[in-house]
Design a protein around this nucleic acid. Sequence first.
DNA 1: GCATCTTTGTCCTGTGCGTGGAGAAAGTTG
DNA 2: CAACTTTCTCCACGCACAGGACAAAGATGC
Lengths: 399, 399
Amino acid sequence: MRRMTARPANAHQARLLRLLRDGGPNSRAQLGDQVDLSRSKLAVEVDRLLETGLVVADGLAASRGGRRSHNIRLAPELRFLGVDIGATSVDVAVTNAELEVLGHVNQPMDVREGPVAVFEQVLAMAAKLKASGLAEGFDGAGIGVPGPVRFPEGVPVAPPIMPGWDGFPVREALSQDLGCPVMVDNDVNLMAMGEQHAGVARSVHDFLCIKIGTGIGCGIVVGGEVYRGTTGSAGDIGHIQVEPDGRPCACGNRGCLEAHFSGAALARDAEEAANSGRSPELAALVEAEGFDGRLTAADVAAAAAAGDAAALELIREGGNRTGQVIAGLVSFFNPGLVVIGGGVTGLGHTLLAAIRTQVYRQSLPLATGNLPIVLGELGPTAGVIGAARLISDHLFSPA
Amino acid sequence: MRRMTARPANAHQARLLRLLRDGGPNSRAQLGDQVDLSRSKLAVEVDRLLETGLVVADGLAASRGGRRSHNIRLAPELRFLGVDIGATSVDVAVTNAELEVLGHVNQPMDVREGPVAVFEQVLAMAAKLKASGLAEGFDGAGIGVPGPVRFPEGVPVAPPIMPGWDGFPVREALSQDLGCPVMVDNDVNLMAMGEQHAGVARSVHDFLCIKIGTGIGCGIVVGGEVYRGTTGSAGDIGHIQVEPDGRPCACGNRGCLEAHFSGAALARDAEEAANSGRSPELAALVEAEGFDGRLTAADVAAAAAAGDAAALELIREGGNRTGQVIAGLVSFFNPGLVVIGGGVTGLGHTLLAAIRTQVYRQSLPLATGNLPIVLGELGPTAGVIGAARLISDHLFSPA
DNA sequence: GCATCTTTGTCCTGTGCGTGGAGAAAGTTG
DNA sequence: CAACTTTCTCCACGCACAGGACAAAGATGC
């Protein structure tokens, strides 16, 4: 089939497309209530959108006390591809134009294998989703990578955990391979956009989104827009020092947050606790049938749930450290919401409680007074939804 | 005389007024190069501005190879009042519409005397400036206060060092007293705006402005606009913890940056160094004729300049602590510039060197790679220029 | 079942904004 | 003094948009 070629011709059309994306199918009359355009003007723009095929008629709406209005919706055959490349696994999902996830596949993969190998995999996963009948092609794709990105060009810059990716033209290469427009961003920013679009951060304009996975990063949303910093490395909080002369970190410094608490650090700590005998539950896991050589955050969570004191202590200490950093960020940034997400959120309420305690104790009342600190509600789909949102924001803007 | 009553009628006029404010007198032709309007449209808008009296003709420009163009400029009799209320002193200045400081007075004053007493003083200072012939009235006033402000209403909220100011309707009261529009903001934000308008931060879009005075605060500029946070307390970095179980702070916690380094903390440390005999230079100052009972940052600077080891150490340690916090902020925010200002900048290069060392060591190369860390170049006028800029931004925007 | 009211959608016209060309005015250059 | 440049004004045309009139479709009340 023919893919989306048209783009909104002006700001009004872009506005309408976003309303339809965020609010789903809608009657012309309801749209009119939201956009402050004369009925005539609105009709003209809607007609033009219908002509381009970006939106389609969708039956009649319920009456609001008079003549029934015609519904319109975004073309149901539009498809976005959301790709979330993590340090150790890849998520790929297909969404419709309303950013609803129609299909989602996940596969373990080491990002250090380099862009060529990873994208081969990604393309295979996308092909699989296509083959299962969810899409005949893609109208756009959003890609998240675990490192800083020069956003306008869509190129990773000096990513610490992605050797071989520095300067690789991700956007251009994938755009070629997929045959559709592509946008690239940091995975943490995409998680923030995901939670903003469909998760806990709906209707919040200024918030922080902390992702604790293999590393630790923070998405910053200012006035509803992601803030990326001067060189695209904003939110890189994993290397903030939490302990003078603390543990050595891969970055060359000592005492970085990431060295003390993150997926990687937690795994090491858990193994040490198991081997030293301090944690009977974790030790049991290591001894158990089918142990694959690595403990994970989920294992620690299980041990803690079973009442293992050492595991609980690991979580609590990590939460304290993270909370200490977040407290500083809260004082500085005064957000309206803090979202915690990423692989380590399996640690759940114990972690959240430790973080909250620390933040509420260390930040000033004015900043924390009405500050919710919550877990993300989308889990692993936050990233891919954010990716789809990224490309849809791009496509649903005036050319 | 009649004060400014007109306001720009549309975005084009607002744009032109700001260009004239920031670029000074300008020919119609030059303006045309900057605004992307047809000659006819430009002429219409300029004529309307001339009619309102906001701008006036200003002779002929130099020829650019053909017919000479007519110059226009902002009405030379327009006056803005810039007020910077610090913890221990007040600055009041008059500027013209181009935000050039025409007169500036400073007076020691304790902000804790409360809003009524302080504004009596401020009005007296403004009257003095008027009496000296610099202004016949004010077309607008910007006010900076040393605490968080609910910006839209211009009301201080829960300011720690300003008892009695909480909820005082500063904007409304002063607007009444001065008979002109008033805007209120945090003093640190105004310093940032000042340095952005006329100081080191010209042409930088994302930067931080650290003000080290009696307390410590940070102005945050995102995309050329001051970011104030959800409750107006963004940038309140004085209470970020730099030392677990460190010194007790007025806020009730321990180890806050402000408790370890700030104008107030430095004075205490200096006195202690003098009394304990560790610092001969400072001891000499205390013994000297005319000593008023308090050492200041300037005294420490003088002692350090004279080679006093203890004074140097105080500065260095303060710089390290501040640098530690800034390093975290740089990782998080990835600014294009960091400006250091406030009363303590008398400590000059020694302080700056200590901060730089710490930041460059602790932050990642990508964030620090091309990051200038510099002293503000406006000193005490940054605040009042920022205040004038605040109100001019307000007045030079479409009604 | 019919009249009346409400809501929605379409058509049409008037208005006001803004572009761009023509040409006059003012200067420069050789 | 002629030829070229730049600036400014004037004017006509096009276009976007608002807003009213009217028709279509449904709800409500008698």
